[in-house]
Design a binder for these strands. Structure first.
Lengths: 213, 213, 213, 213
DNA sequence: AATGAATGAGGGTTCATTCAT
DNA sequence: CATGAATGAACCCTCATTCAT
């Protein structure tokens, strides 16, 4: 059947994202993408139309992957176990997702082209941060019901959790330009969770930040 | 003397940033910048070298301006007056700075070209967010000493305050693509300050979010 | 048997001429021809070699058809009946042939590609205007012998008759770009025959143009 | 001043027509035109926009030239001198104009692209055959008044004169593909004038075709 | 015999940059 | 110094043509 066709399409999209990530949309040339995918230039056009379409699809595919990773990262956020430890673990995993090279590339490309291609926002955030935010809000809501968190608007709390987590990392990683050590990720997660729990933690947990370091 | 020369240079840089902001670095063409500045193309080259230099200088100038605005926004953050009201006011002013069209353009351009021009990070953040972060940290430290805030690492607190402030706004403004109503800015500032004070507010202020609305 | 093969070949040639007529040789793309014929691209190549051959064959087929129409149009030119009326009728029929959409397309394509493909002249005129000219000359010769026309070189007379007929129509139809009303065709035929008979008509017919209108 | 600019524009247009005449519109590539003009490709674009505009302007310029030649050819058509001799001379000159290489190229290009660029008809005929037809009609009208011709609609007579002149030549020159000997041109002009005068000549001239050869 | 997929070659157009005035 | 004009280098895209199925 057209199994091969789909595979090739996937290969081209992967190659495209790789090159777009490395060069940016305008600097990237289709020839290079084709070379990266190991096909001839017209094959790219046959499969994905013009450069614009190639870009959109590559972005969508990358966003899908990034979302899947992030969603899987917050699956550990059940009501069971120590709240602080769980949040730190989830935070750490999220930072690893969002701090990955491809995730940063996705975000940079999004910022770079959002003005020219406004739909890109939904393409990426609809499948990425927002869907992630909603999923996280759901988890936090259940945690609140279970007494693990002080009651609050779960959407706001989710947004703020993500902001506390990723915001300070932007500077640390120089916008994803510099690799961030594992320890720094951990520290970042802990700092975010500290503050988050001071604001939203259960009364009982107040004043007991994670013990060591 | 060279007064006119400097003026023309300034005019070209302004025009350049306007066009870069509108089109992005690669899409922007020197011809258009020259037209926007009201001069001929070679004049641009005489004054600022090549397109690359033009971009760097334009970014630096725009970053300087943005920093000045933000610094002036946090000047209200003295120890005097109600902490919550002051923070909300400052937060609101900051959001107006950072949410302005040129500020978003600056950020988008930074994201877009950071990979190709790494120095851009310092050019912008050295004069922008970081210097802002430090200044904010200083203010917060003095607030802590004055008892207006619970003791904490001022750098961390400053970073988190900015994150709580701007993070959730990214989605709301669709990365600066959509104008955000004044009321939304106020609400955003309040939400950030609420959480910030729950985490870092003085014990006395605990549990007393801004009364109305 | 190969009945189906021939049919498909014919279908492809028809489609080819249609597309060539619409787009011109260079603008027409094989893909479109294949689509018009309802087959896949390689099928076209299997049946007719490359684009060049496709073009030649399509032109030849179209020329054959056009010739057949024109030849049938002059069949009415027997010695019987009124000379003027007969000539006008034949002239009118010829104008309808030569003024048809496909005939104009044929001529335009001939003009367009004659320089690149000189044989095209014989392909088209050998089967078209020239063979038509000869046939017409034969008819006129018999008319002369029968006294219906003043004696003259039949080849010259035939050529001039066709020239008087079609020449002025070129401007009227804007080179086949504009449809010409039936009445205009009639008037054109009458004007041509008027002059033709003034020059070649029998002495008896002198000065008696077609009576009405 | 911009004298040089105009000169270069003229040079480019000349080169363009030369190449278009040689290759046809679609086969001609801008690179070759630029080479023929001795400039770089972008210079062509600076002066004349895209290929389409280049074509239109080149056609208009060529048509202007062709018209000037033809108009000058019929200037000899005054009432003085022998009618037959004068007409033959004018006819011969016209055939030399219309049978020239550039004139044929102009016509072929016109036929080739008329469907895609309908305005071309006016561009060429408005300045060419039609304006020529009108001018010729004027001359013939004065000839009629002077008794040199039998009275007739001058527009019709002019059109038919041109048709008798050029129509039979199309086949002889294989659509301008083959050079036509001077003697053939003379013979063509004589044949046309013979018939024309038989139809429109003064009664006195009837039956006295040009004596020798 | 017919097709989906792939490719090599080539063309129009734009742009950053440099002379000559 | 400012400018009009010129250029070399790229890049996107299309198309005629050929395999493998």
């Amino acid at each position: 059947m057209s199994r091969g066709r789909i595979d090739k399409r996937r290969a081209i999209l992967d190659a495209a994202f790789t090159v777009f990530a490395r060069e940016g949309y305008h600097q990237a040339c289709v020839k290079e993408i084709a070379a990266e995918a190991g096909v001839a230039k017209p094959t790219v056009y046959n499969h994905l139309g013009d450069k614009e379409g190639l870009f959109r699809e590559a972005m969508a595919a990358a966003a899908d992957r990034a979302l899947a990773e992030s969603l899987s990262a917050i699956e550990a956020l059940t009501g069971e176990g120590d709240v602080r430890a769980t949040l730190e673990d989830v935070g750490h995993r999220l930072l690893r997702c969002q701090g990955g090279e491809r995730a940063w590339a996705l975000r940079r490309l999004l910022y770079a082209e959002i003005h020219r291609v406004p739909e890109l926002f939904d393409t990426v955030h609809g499948r990425g941060a927002n869907r992630l935010g909603e999923a996280l809000a759901n988890r936090l809501a259940r945690l609140s019901l279970g007494g693990g968190l002080r009651a609050a608007d779960p959407d706001v709390a989710a947004g703020q959790f993500l902001a506390l987590l990723t915001g300070p990392m932007e500077t640390r990683s120089r916008l994803g330009t510099r690799p961030v050590a594992e320890a720094e990720l951990r520290a970042g997660a802990r700092a975010a969770v500290d503050t988050f729990l001071r604001a939203f933690g259960p009364v009982s947990a107040e004043g007991q930040p994670s013990g060591d370091r």
